[in-house]
Design a protein around this nucleic acid. Structure first.
Lengths: 282, 282
DNA sequence: ACAATTATGAAATAAAATTTCATTTTTTCT
DNA sequence: AGAAAAAATGAAATTTTATTTCATAATTGT
């Protein structure tokens, strides 16, 4: 993606003259983005068509397009990447790393999401007689949050973070019920069993989990949320934040699908909370 | 620096036709960087010189230079901005908007955080006899999550999302106890009262809230998490995600402060969960 | 050494951007 | 309200920039 890296990589695939161009660019990319093709050609002591060919060899449409790519590469100062916390990090450092990693996870999760599946999930949710959210451990709080959100919509919604309650609830589920099972690893035995139970009892089971896990196999619909592996001892579970964002997406989809009359209702709930608050003085 | 923001800011300094150009650009900046001046002019239903004048008004040398700036803005800076969900958004659109807004909130929250306060909070936490997390509504799940995290550290930790329990717990707190009160608005009466109660009883009260709220005034330490206002009906509470990230930061700080022996213990907890899982086959 | 392939640049062409200038619209002043 | 001034706008001309074409040069393999 980064064009500067690409130039470096393909340096030996280039012809002699093209390499001259590459060198001039690598030496001072920020100058190049303000140069015309003629200026660059002169700088590299080659002809303008050579510059043009060079650009095309890097899969750009031509010189202007190449400059655009170059500009973007230069701008990419600190893209969000997963940076692991180190034992000797200062508060400044680990704070920055955690926030950045969290953002990187969200970015990744977004990419792994399939909006057609989201659409289908929203479909199913809007038609549900009852919605249940199940999770354990870190995913329990996602289920908790989901209940919180959907409760505002005035639909029958429950959440359980207890294996027995989940089991009982799954057994009692029936056609028209939707069960959303949340698990990052998708390998927690009891949860996989609960998913299977719910499905046996004709509930629609939506899994919020990683692609290809045992849990995914038991679900009617799988919302894959792939985030980078929790290899870090200090800082696990940015997965749950991605899951929460997904809950927001589902809740939003739900609201939009339900239409404007429904949204008036939502406003009432919001307003009703006001009296329990101190007034703003500004 | 960011040209998109600049356009937004100077929108009212622009003439009618120039504003049309601005709107087309803002609507789809990534298309524009691949358009010629003619294409953009046509799109905006104005003439080419107008586009040129527009570019110059934004202190660029001309259209190509403007595109360069635009390309850079798209690549870096604040790629994530708060974009409100619109009634007619497709699943694709609202998913993208929610993820981006969430990331924007994290970015904002990180900027508002004061690492010296984080350091002090970690200090206090590592020396606590007992840690309590209180929250209501959306913040309840943050408290829930915090308990989950700190529980692994084998320290006495509780969480309550019930006003009465919070009250009782606050009254029973004593010197050496740390109470963390979480509230985005910082205006929930009962929570503010609980904070005051805990402080009266010599607990160290840490508030996770927005700067300058009534709750902030009652706390010994205030961890300000400022995110943009929840003005959006559909998509509230990205605040909670910023709060969760902050919990991660505190937990990480805690682990680091406790040193290596402590971390061995943490690994044991992680390993103990393994047996409840299906094995990976890869 | 020589045919085949590939690389290169001069010149021509095409495309894109900018300037000039006349016309239209808006604002300001009486 | 109406005239003068100022500002905004676009058509056309011009300039700049990029791309294509094609002839020549360099390189490679036999």
């Amino acid at each position: 993606m980064n064009i500067l890296e690409k130039i470096t990589n393909e340096l030996d695939m280039l012809s002699k003259s093209e390499r001259k161009v590459a060198e001039v660019i690598l030496a001072s990319p920020s100058t190049v983005i303000h140069s015309s093709i003629a200026a660059l050609a002169k700088q590299a002591n080659i002809s303008e068509p050579t510059v043009n060919r060079f650009c095309r060899r890097l899969d750009t449409k031509g010189y202007p397009d190449f400059k655009l790519h170059l500009a973007q590469s230069l701008a990419n100062g600190t893209p969000y990447v997963n940076r692991h916390v180190d034992e000797n990090d200062s508060a400044d450092e680990y704070t920055a790393k955690i926030f950045e990693s969290t953002m990187a996870s969200l970015e990744l999760a977004r990419k792994s999401l399939d909006t057609s599946v989201i659409n289908r999930s929203v479909d199913v949710l809007t038609q549900a007689n009852k919605i249940s959210f199940f999770g354990l451990g870190a995913s329990a709080i996602v289920a908790h949050d989901a209940q919180n959100k959907f409760f505002r919509f005035n639909v029958p919604v429950v959440y359980f973070d207890d294996i027995l309650m989940q089991r009982m609830s799954a057994i009692n589920s029936q056609q028209g019920d939707v069960v959303i099972v949340i698990s990052h690893t998708g390998r927690t035995k009891s949860l996989v069993e609960v998913a299977a139970l719910a499905k046996e009892n004709d509930a629609t089971v939506i899994g919020i989990t990683t692609t290809g896990t045992p849990l995914a196999k038991e679900c009617s619909i799988v919302l894959s949320v792939d985030v980078s592996e929790d290899t870090d001892l200090y800082m696990p579970m940015s997965s749950r934040i991605a899951q929460l964002a997904l809950i927001d997406v589902l809740a939003t989809g739900f609201t939009l699908r339900r239409g404007s009359k429904f949204r008036d209702n939502l406003k009432k709930v919001k307003d009703s909370l006001r009296s329990s608050r101190f007034e703003r003085k500004d």
